[in-house]
Design a binder for these strands. Structure first.
Length: 872
DNA sequence: GCGGACTGCTTACCT
DNA sequence: ACAGGTAAGCAGTCCGCG
């Protein structure tokens, strides 16, 4: 089988008219790219960049939205892989004789760490592996200090050529030409106006981002794939590296609405009851080989292929199964590496990896899904989960199997389609910001994205990218002590909450506190602890660190410009009712992408995994944060404002006058140089004495619950239910005198729970705690927590338990105290334990409203409950 | 040998 | 592999108790 259809642009397509890009975004009103293109290949979106070993050249995959095909383009500039050294050519004789060596060049670079221009030798090689990547004998291992030797070659190529992934390009006479996108003139003017007070250099950054982010995203033709494998033991998942079992079905759902299920014919399998939706095409195969050929044909046809865990399962299984069935390498359109499965033709996006990304989970989707399984993510985001099975996959009838398999492909596809292709757009926007291929952007964490965007900027400015060892040696020190033992430096301040109910509370917070600090205080790896003696008096509060006064830091500029664009442009426009819904939603995608990057921009500098790891930068950011909130509280107090709580970047103030608020906001702007805003206003807030733990009720009755146990996901349903009832009652309280009535109602709920519990009037499911097991069972060496005990019982009973699984357990009266819900019965439930748990959960709320749990139930009844439950 | 005080481990959360 | 700070429950240990 031929894996690549075509590398060259279609000859006949010599467009005379401007192509209409942007028409396919599925959104109305997104402006077309108005460009004159006289080229063989009309503007196409760059999605993927890799190194092709066979051709010894970088290969780019471009998606052309009209033909909806991928075109590959190979580098014609003779760009070569390289690394840098401070040794002169004369001392590099051994390198010269390396078989992969090509030639030397002498280059000038700016070394930001020393603030000096330096002359270096550039060692260019014939192929990337000669620089590094071989277990031994790589050029980078032959020299004492090698710079930029650990950057993947295709990334290095992207940075050197200033290539923008996710952006449109044209190919003319073999050359790759960026398609210049100009945002509408009116937007441009508005933007200029908003940023008119910034210096030209900063404005240039804003302009570059603006052009990158505004460019519309096309519709992508794509296919979701899912395979079902036979398994002799129902609770065992087949090993993809072994691939010793048959693939019995493959489901395919594409973005044009085509739905296919390929089914392997097997003896003794019946058609079964029920029906299959009419639009589904079911194709039976006599042999696995013919079925797989058909799958490979599909994989070689679609520009984008989606899976959920395809890297580690579906595509890996297909690959190894094909090898086992004697397919040749050329017949298998999949390229396996240690951590990913890529495709010869299009791009493979493993949605499991994307949704697993903590930053995506928290900042892009606001914790809307908590369990990263296909079922968990799909149920939360699109409201449809997997088909529930009564029998193992291997025992299903054809009808059941088809319906089951199909659903998986359908929901995998839908995860990229909901909210107007939100996920596809997020991926493209993140690729543009990070300059990474979409395969990488969906697989790497936020530190990889920020690394890439920083490296790209270094190359653009002709800066030397620092070696991590050198950075660590110069700037590995911190000067504060953390509150949590074992952490590297002190973090944020949390203000003691004032106990009780507070009516009319306004919450003020600093807009993007840490990114603002990075911008305003000029924080960057090269500016903190800079080499100039004259800067040493420019101290960061509470630390021994100083900041450069002579140069503006690279991260200060990058993070600062992204932050300002989000705060001043994209966020307001994502809410602007004057714009169309489609535009607002597009601005919201950009706004969210920026948020994901910005929220992590401080943390990465404190993370050893980050290639520009520089703890003093993170430490300084946090220190200035403490300074800002502390000063704000002082100022508020001196203005006569009552501060009842605060955490990191927010202060909660009780019944402030408008004048007091205005004065405080004004003070922050002028004195701290940071924007303080009214984030929200509560009708009332209830605090216990616990930090990060409160209930806020808005004027319209909506409720914010923060940190309270009753909201946590591991808590049994029945406790959540009782908790929510209590919250419901509290949300109806309008004025202080209504609390008495609320108290009585809450009393009723507590009583009811007590009665039901003593009668065991609950299902096991309602009583189950759901706790995630984060490592393999045998890695719990110091202690054996309850969920691990339950997991062990599960394993004994033949279940498979792996990290990331959520264990559902019941507290029972046996020697261990727990049993997994699968093995427990209602008679053995430890009702006393549940009573105690309910009590502590409700207490978090009751404390705040001045109620006592024991008092509510009546101490005698509680005691009798505890005593009674002892008896049975 | 038993139990309360304590520490440390683990999970889930907040910003 | 973005960070540190907080709450809570439980496992395990120490120490006093004639």
């Amino acid at each position: 089988m031929k894996s690549l259809e075509s590398f060259l642009p279609p000859e006949e397509d010599d467009s005379k008219k401007s192509p209409q890009y942007g028409k396919n975004t599925g959104t109305e009103e997104v402006h077309d790219l108005d460009i004159e293109v006289t080229t063989k290949l009309p503007a196409s979106y760059l999605i993927s960049v890799t190194y092709d070993g066979k051709r010894s050249a970088v290969s780019l995959k471009l998606y052309e939205p009209k033909s909806r095909k991928i075109y590959s383009w190979y580098d014609e500039t003779k760009h070569l892989p390289y690394c840098l050294t401070d040794l002169p050519v004369t001392e590099l004789k051994s390198v010269e004789s390396h078989q992969g060596f090509d030639h030397f060049e002498t280059v000038e670079k700016y070394d930001a760490l020393t603030d000096r221009e330096v002359e270096l030798t550039k060692i260019l090689a014939k192929d990337p592996l000669a620089i590094g990547g071989r277990p031994s004998g790589s050029i980078r291992d032959m020299i004492p200090k090698a710079w930029e030797a650990n950057i993947r070659y295709y990334e290095s190529y992207i940075y050197d050529r200033e290539i923008s992934t996710g952006m449109p390009y044209a190919v003319s006479r073999g050359h790759l030409i960026p398609v210049d996108y100009q945002p509408p003139e009116e937007d441009r003017k508005n933007l200029d106006d908003i940023f008119k007070d910034e210096n030209p250099e900063f404005k240039a950054y804003v302009d570059r981002w603006f052009k990158l982010l505004e460019c519309p995203v096309p519709e992508f033709r794509r296919l979701a794939l899912d395979i079902e494998v036979y398994s002799p033991i129902a609770t065992r998942i087949p090993d993809p590296r072994e691939a010793d079992q048959k693939i019995i079905a493959v489901s395919l759902a594409d973005s044009d609405g085509n739905k296919r299920v390929l089914v392997l014919k097997r003896p003794d399998v019946h058609e079964g009851e029920g029906t299959v939706p009419k639009e589904v095409k079911i194709e039976f195969f006599e042999s696995e080989e013919s079925m797989m050929s058909e799958v490979f044909r599909a994989l070689s046809e679609y520009p984008i292929v989606l899976t959920f865990n395809g890297d580690d399962f579906d595509l890996s299984y297909l690959y190894h199964r094909a090898e086992r069935l004697k397919f040749t390498r050329e017949q298998i359109p999949i390229e396996l590496s240690k951590t990913s499965a890529l495709l010869s033709y299009g791009a493979h996006i493993d949605l499991y990896k994307f949704f697993f990304n903590r930053s995506i989970q928290i900042y892009a989707f606001g914790q809307r899904y908590t369990e990263v399984t296909l079922n968990g993510v799909a149920e939360s985001l699109i409201g449809v989960g997997k088909v529930e099975l009564e029998h193992p996959v291997s025992e299903l009838s054809y009808t059941e199997l088809v319906n089951y398999a199909l659903r998986d492909a359908e929901i995998t596809l839908q995860l990229t389609e909901f909210d107007d292709d939100l996920v596809m757009k997020l991926i493209i926007v993140l690729a543009r910001i990070s300059q990474l291929p979409i395969e990488d952007v969906t697989r790497q964490g936020v530190s990889g994205w920020i690394r890439s965007l920083m490296f790209a900027e270094h190359r653009r400015l002709n800066w030397l990218i620092p070696r991590p060892e050198e950075l660590l040696e110069l700037k590995g020190v911190t000067s504060t002590t953390s509150i949590i033992e074992g952490k590297k430096y002190r973090g944020a301040i949390v203000v003691e909450p004032k106990l009780g109910i507070h009516f009319d509370v306004s919450v003020l917070d600093f807009a993007s506190l840490y990114p603002s600090i990075i911008k305003r205080w000029n924080l960057s790896y090269e500016t903190v602890l800079c080499p100039h003696p004259e800067c040493k008096d420019n101290k960061i509060p509470e630390t021994t660190h100083w900041v450069c006064k002579k140069r503006t830091g690279i991260s200060s500029k990058l993070i600062g410009s992204l932050k300002d664009l989000r705060v001043k442009w994209y966020k307001p426009r994502s809410k602007d009712k004057k714009l169309t819904a489609a535009k607002r939603s597009w601005y919201n995608v950009i706004q969210q992408s920026l948020k994901v990057i910005l929220n992590a921009s401080y943390g990465v500098f404190g993370s050893e995994a980050f290639s520009l790891y520089c703890p003093p930068v993170a430490e300084s950011t946090a220190a200035v944060g403490r300074y800002a909130i502390t000063e704000a509280i002082k100022e508020a107090t001196s203005l006569g404002i009552n501060v009842v709580y605060g955490d990191t970047d927010s202060i909660f103030i009780k019944s402030p006058t408008q004048e007091q608020i205005n004065k405080l906001l004004e003070w922050s702007n002028s004195t701290l140089g940071m924007e303080l805003d009214v984030d929200k206003v509560y009708r009332y807030v209830a605090f216990s004495l616990r930090k990060k733990n409160y209930l806020g009720v808005y004027p319209d009755g909506r409720v914010d619950i923060k940190g309270l146990t009753g909201k946590k996901r591991h808590v049994p349903e029945f406790i959540k239910e009782a908790f929510l009832q209590v919250i419901q009652i509290l949300s109806e309280v309008i004025s202080p005198d209504e609390f008495e009535r609320a108290r009585n109602k809450i009393r009723g709920i507590a009583h009811q729970c007590y009665e039901r519990l003593s009668k065991r009037d609950f299902s096991l499911a309602e009583l189950a705690f759901s706790i995630m097991i984060s490592k393999p069972i045998d890695r719990y060496e110091k202690t054996t927590p309850q969920h691990v005990k339950a997991a062990k019982l599960l394993v004994d009973a033949g279940y498979e338990v792996k990290p990331g699984d959520v264990i559902t357990l019941i507290k029972v009266k046996n020697s261990l105290g727990v049993k997994p819900v699968q093995l427990a019965s209602i008679e053995e439930v430890d009702t006393k334990k549940y009573m105690a748990y309910m009590r502590s959960t409700l207490e978090q709320v009751l404390d705040a409203i001045g109620l006592d749990f024991d008092e509510i139930l009546g101490s005698t009844r509680l005691e009798s409950f505890l005593w009674n439950s002892d008896q049975n």
